[in-house]
Nucleic acid binder design. Sequence first.
DNA 1: CAATTAGTTTACGTATACGTTAACTTTATC
DNA 2: GATAAAGTTAACGTATACGTAAACTAATTG
Lengths: 129, 129
Amino acid sequence: MDRLFSINELAEQFDITARAIRFYEDKGLISPDRAGSRRVYTRRDRGRLQLILRGKRLGFSLEEIREYLDLYDQDPAQVSQMQLLLTKISERRLQLVQQQKDIVQTLADLDGIQEQTEALLKAAEGTKP
Amino acid sequence: MDRLFSINELAEQFDITARAIRFYEDKGLISPDRAGSRRVYTRRDRGRLQLILRGKRLGFSLEEIREYLDLYDQDPAQVSQMQLLLTKISERRLQLVQQQKDIVQTLADLDGIQEQTEALLKAAEGTKP
DNA sequence: CAATTAGTTTACGTATACGTTAACTTTATC
DNA sequence: GATAAAGTTAACGTATACGTAAACTAATTG
């Protein structure tokens, strides 16, 4: 049940290139085991990759995503680091809430344009037949 | 009441550089009038700039934003273009809805990490005093 | 065992989104 | 009328996120 994946399997699953996955590794976002020289990915690695792609869809840079992944990895054993962690979380939260507002506004805008366009289409239908 | 703006006024208002604004013009996202050689921005131009920045916050490329702005500009007089317009709108809508889901999921993740961290902080408080 | 097939590293190339001088022109101010 | 302040174009530089080609190795398959 606990499958392992090759780099090309993951690439296919997520519709990205193996090159991209290697690049994320170069930048320290993911660290698969090796079997000899071959990269071997666990389900956990796969989950990380999913988080990376979600971060990208949200418009974050790979550097920002790396910081974000660190939030998950932090074993918050050291109290000194925990406050920093909470600070980063609330910063990230502010960005995301702003994005939510932007999306709501943009979807409303699109609604408007769509309605106008559809109305004009209907009017045009009545004209020609 | 219908103010005009210089490039540096706009730059300051939106906390970006004049260079960025000129760059958006180079890429065809905005086309201010000129007074001699100086760029002069109307309130409408200002609105466009706001849309550009919103698009950026949503992670769209300038090229995508240009297409998006075209949705606003389209005088949908030609029926043939209207169907294309509606198609683009629904494509954009799919992206934004996916982003909404991503944000909800990510905020939930952050909630989890934050709760855990705060619980650990409280436990640590009880330990040392 | 020859030949795919899959994977590896290294290195250079490229699109995007500006930053940063440089050299020049207007416009405003003293 | 000199000088500063604001603006202009042109050109080169830079960080990010990969694409692409080369040259190699290891594993599988007929």
